[in-house]
Nucleic acid binder design. Structure first.
Lengths: 179, 179
DNA sequence: CATTTATTTCTGTCAAGACTGAAGTTAATG
DNA sequence: CATTAACTTCAGTCTTGACAGAAATAAATG
């Protein structure tokens, strides 16, 4: 069976994918998942699971699982091509959009459970047993996470252009606020 | 040899430490490292390495290594007590300060190397071989990371109170900027 | 409705790295 | 300067999770 579907990667594309995989791993993302996402990002067109497997030299089954995870993060969408029964997968080419989706995903999967846990502490009958200092620090942590996520929600609702302006205005705004 | 140094953890403290360890693991931080940090945060006083090991039931050597890592992130400082030769370890009780240190650390360890890699691509003789689309996406990624880190640098230079104000003003500022 | 094709799930293997206990090193004390 | 205490490093073990190949399932086609 001939290999028809392997994309040949340029040196830079390959290095990008490898670096992205490394970084993913550091941030708690499966290396293959990060690599597949990087490949789709640079390819800029829908790829079939076979093509991905061939190109990155990973098992077809591994690609299947990784794509499933990327789908669950909504980083990847399924598309179809006329006359081809296979699913094809693509990702947004807009880094801002990707960033938004990742932040949104982490918020739902990690921040919200943490808020739930911390809030539960406040309700707990054991709460009164804590030292006042520990109680205060837990409350400050809760408040910190709340402020940060509320703000992140607001920011991520903005259009990329607005967001860019906000970020680039950062210095001026903070000078203003400090006074 | 009697165990003199084990702190008894309240139910909530224990649950906090366990949850923090879990979250750390998700974000690519060694679970013990995160747990030790959580313990120091809630204890609110300097603890010896022995005391940490006893309290969390992990090997003394593991504590040594983990503390070394926390020191390298500057999340933990060594202090001494009169009449005790042992090092004691403490962390800031201020979540904002901790957050700053973590962001700063990740920036240095992960973001800067990534910027270096991407910048290198632009200089590379292979750069011209890339498709225009891939080139554009890599450049946009670079720009995105640059804008975000520049902004983060600015924000983290602020006092916590200024920062709080900025975050809480978020909505108003973005309404203003959009126009 | 049998057959081919596409996709997912399952299971065993392997590698990375977290953890431990022991050995080694350094520093303080009498 | 010998001895004890504090701390670090090292080597092996154990755990976790990534991965490949095989088997199972689902879907499409003639």
């Amino acid at each position: 069976m001939p290999i028809l579907s392997r994309m040949k990667l340029t040196s830079i594309t390959e290095r990008f994918i490898l670096h992205w995989g490394e970084m993913g791993a550091r941030w708690g993302v499966n290396r293959s998942v990060a690599q597949i996402h990087a490949l789709l990002f640079l390819a800029g067109r829908p790829l079939s699971a076979d093509e991905i497997a061939e190109t990155l030299s990973v098992a077809r089954s591994n690609v299947s699982m990784s794509l499933k995870e990327l789908l669950s993060w909504r980083l990847v969408k399924i598309t179809h091509q006329m006359g081809d029964r296979r699913d094809h997968f693509e990702t947004s080419k807009d880094v801002w959009e990707l960033f938004k989706l990742i932040v949104e995903g982490r918020k739902q999967r990690e921040v919200e459970p943490t808020l739930a846990v911390l809030n539960e502490f406040l309700q707990s009958p054991d709460w009164a047993e804590e030292t006042p200092e520990a109680r205060q620090r837990i409350q400050e942590t809760l408040e910190f996470i709340r402020v940060l996520t509320t703000w992140a929600d607001e920011m991520l609702r903005q259009e990329p252009e607005t967001l860019m302006k906000l970020l680039k205005m950062g210095a001026k705004i903070s000078d203003f606020v400090r006074k």
